[in-house]
Design a protein around this nucleic acid. Structure first.
Lengths: 192, 192
DNA sequence: GAGCTAACCAAGCAAGCGCTAGTGTGAATG
DNA sequence: CATTCACACTAGCGCTTGCTTGGTTAGCTC
């Protein structure tokens, strides 16, 4: 019916939707609320998105793609040793909270509201992000930098990491850089 | 209008509601679905609960009270040394997932759906539980068992811990006892 | 056996929901 | 100048929602 490409207009609408989804939750956010936030009428919304679910998928896709891009960039521009790479990943993760916090909160809390297709599609994106972490964790384990069961360590780290969205203020006193260092130090066996 | 005490019937209804809230999410669970699951008609539901929100509050309160009780018991019946206490807390946390997983998932994901009063009330319960953890973590820090910033360590641990609800199967191969040990070992500086 | 009460039911109301159909409009395109 | 297109609007359909109302029933107590 309508054009569903990713126009700049659609990107902006997605950003505003993310904000509302965080404030109210996906189910409680009505298309009328979304439209009002966007400065249009509720009917016009369906010119940009097929249905309400697609807005949710767009929000999560946007956030995850950015996180992936930032993580990739961080890994490419850091030292090769396992500790530097761990820190780079942690810093990258905290940095995305600066620009895409809303999207990440939505991804964390509203994932189950996605329909099967969107979940499958976005699942791959998410897996790619987690695979980056697991690779870096594997390197750190192999180097003896951290210790413990591979499966457990990665769940543990993922949990701690995802939880940051609940308490970390990227505009507060501690920089992503600094916090990433401390987070990694906590995991490591003390040197010397 | 009706009696809102905590009758055994109400406890049972609360347990069933928790299951549905996990499956569908709070907002998507209609009073009609709840009633059907309970084997009554939707109108009858309001004999037991003032409104839908109160069911959510009941679910979370039940789960948190149990977690607190189990944690207290675990701390009272374990050795005094910091490592034993950390392990006891971790084991207790994983044990509650055996009996109250639904309630904990609901507490984690649907907390924001609570109205202000319920949130304040249940917030104190939750704080009490987290305070137990923080005390034990403080002891471990003071004893040099683990290292790092007090604030960060506790957030990190809380995150990893709350995340367990997403992957840990208490009826699987690893017992809560065993997993608690591994989780604590991961945090600790290696001995000897 | 009258009175009370917890537990339930049938019926439905008012409000709100996602979404559609059909139309208007100003700018770009041929 | 005619056509197309992106974008927005108005109006409302069909349905579901949380919750209320007014009444019934089975079991208990005095």
């Amino acid at each position: 019916m309508n054009v569903m490409n990713d126009s700049p207009r659609r990107k902006e609408l997605t950003r505003q939707a993310a904000q509302l989804f965080v404030q109210e939750g996906f189910d409680r956010t009505t298309v009328r609320m979304l439209a009002e936030e966007m400065g249009i009428k509720s009917g016009s919304l369906f010119h940009h998105f097929r249905d309400k679910q697609e807005i949710l998928a767009a929000v999560i896709e946007e956030g995850t793609r950015n996180a992936l891009a930032i993580a990739h960039a961080a890994l490419e521009s850091c030292d090769r040793d396992p500790q530097a790479r761990l820190q780079a990943m942690a810093r990258a993760h905290l940095e995305t909270l600066l620009t895409d916090r809303n999207a990440h909160v939505v991804a964390l809390y509203e994932w189950r509201r996605l329909d099967d297709d969107a979940r499958a599609h976005l699942g791959h994106l998410r897996d790619a992000y987690e695979a980056l972490w697991e690779a870096v964790i594997d390197e750190a384990l192999a180097a003896g930098l951290i210790h413990g069961d591979r499966f457990l360590v990665s769940r543990f780290v993922m949990g701690a990491l995802n939880w940051t969205v609940r308490w970390y203020d990227p505009e507060g006193e501690r920089s992503p850089e600094e916090l990433g260092r401390e987070l990694v130090a906590m995991l490591m066996a003390p040197r010397g």
